[in-house]
Simulated scan of single mutants.
Amino acid sequence: MLDLKICPGCGDRADIPVVTEGQLVCARCGHRRPFHRLPLLALTGPSAAGKSTVGPELARRLSGEVVVLEQDVLWTAGLRDDVDGHPLFRSTWLRMAAMIHQSGRPVVLCGTVVPPEFEPLPERVFFSSIHYLALVADPGALAARLRARPAWREWDEPRIAEMLEFNDWLRADAATMSPPVSLFDTTDATLEAAVDHVEAWVRRVTSADRRSGSPGAAPAH
């Protein structure tokens, strides 16, 4: 599938993609093309809250309906060296998800991301909406899970403290973000309960999108 930033008419690459009336429009040659503008679902939260545990079971349950991807797959090379919120890394993920969406199946992206890191990016225009669900946990439980991880994952105390701070921030401010971030506490939840909750969220978002039957709205860039 062609990168949606590249015009199939003239081959120009748009740094700032333009969508008008549900179609991609090339700023250079004016070529217009329809595309699948689907919602993106971001399953976020701090490390050890349960994203990587929930993801495989979610993929099994929703096989053929959505594509479940792990963010860390692209956490490599120059993308890892990116700074200030890692915009290049996140833009690459949005481009990848948008290309997968052209198959007609929404993407569930499992990784640590919050609205201020996705919403301002030029590639945000490829999606009708982005929905965020964060798995969080009690700080004590989260710290214990991180300390129990194998040594190669390098979870020292300063790094654990940073993740606990992120967890606390999400729990305090999720509802005030734009768009708001939903929360699910995994402290005492079973895997089945966590997957049930995430599956219901995915089905609710995708069903609402199908009922709307419209390309949706995205920020202007």
Rank of each mutant, 00 (worst) to 15 (best):
M1C: 02
M1W: 15
L2K: 14
D3S: 06
D3P: 04
I6G: 03
C7H: 01
P8T: 10
G9I: 03
G9R: 01
G11R: 00
D12N: 09
R13C: 09
R13Y: 08
D15C: 09
D15M: 12
P17M: 06
Q23P: 03
L24M: 13
C26M: 01
G30H: 06
G30I: 09
H31C: 04
P34Y: 08
F35Y: 12
F35R: 12
H36T: 03
L38V: 02
P39M: 12
A42Y: 06
A42F: 02
T44D: 05
G45F: 14
P46N: 13
S47I: 03
S47K: 02
A48P: 00
A48Y: 00
A48L: 00
A49H: 10
A49G: 15
V54P: 11
E57G: 09
E57H: 10
R60L: 04
L62I: 08
L62E: 02
S63A: 10
E65N: 12
V66S: 14
V67F: 15
V68G: 13
L69D: 06
Q71M: 12
D72W: 00
V73I: 10
L74C: 07
T76C: 08
T76R: 14
L79F: 06
L79C: 13
R80L: 12
D81P: 06
D82Q: 00
H86R: 02
H86V: 01
P87F: 05
F89V: 00
R90F: 09
S91W: 00
S91N: 03
S91R: 02
L94D: 02
R95E: 07
M96S: 08
A97N: 00
M99A: 04
I100K: 12
H101P: 01
Q102L: 12
S103V: 11
P106L: 04
C110D: 13
C110H: 04
G111A: 03
G111C: 06
V113S: 05
V114L: 15
V114E: 07
P115N: 10
P116S: 00
E117M: 14
E119A: 06
L121E: 05
F126M: 10
F127G: 02
S128V: 00
I130T: 15
H131N: 06
L133V: 14
V136D: 08
P139A: 09
A141Q: 13
A141N: 04
L142Y: 03
A143C: 06
L146D: 01
L146G: 08
R153S: 03
R153V: 07
E157S: 05
R159E: 10
A161Q: 08
N167E: 05
W169Y: 10
W169A: 10
R171F: 07
A174W: 11
T176R: 15
T176N: 09
M177E: 06
P179L: 11
P179H: 08
L183V: 11
T186K: 12
A189F: 08
T190S: 13
H197K: 10
H197I: 08
E199F: 09
V202I: 07
R203H: 12
R203D: 05
R203S: 14
D209S: 10
D209H: 14
D209E: 15
G213L: 14
S214D: 02
A217N: 07
H221M: 00
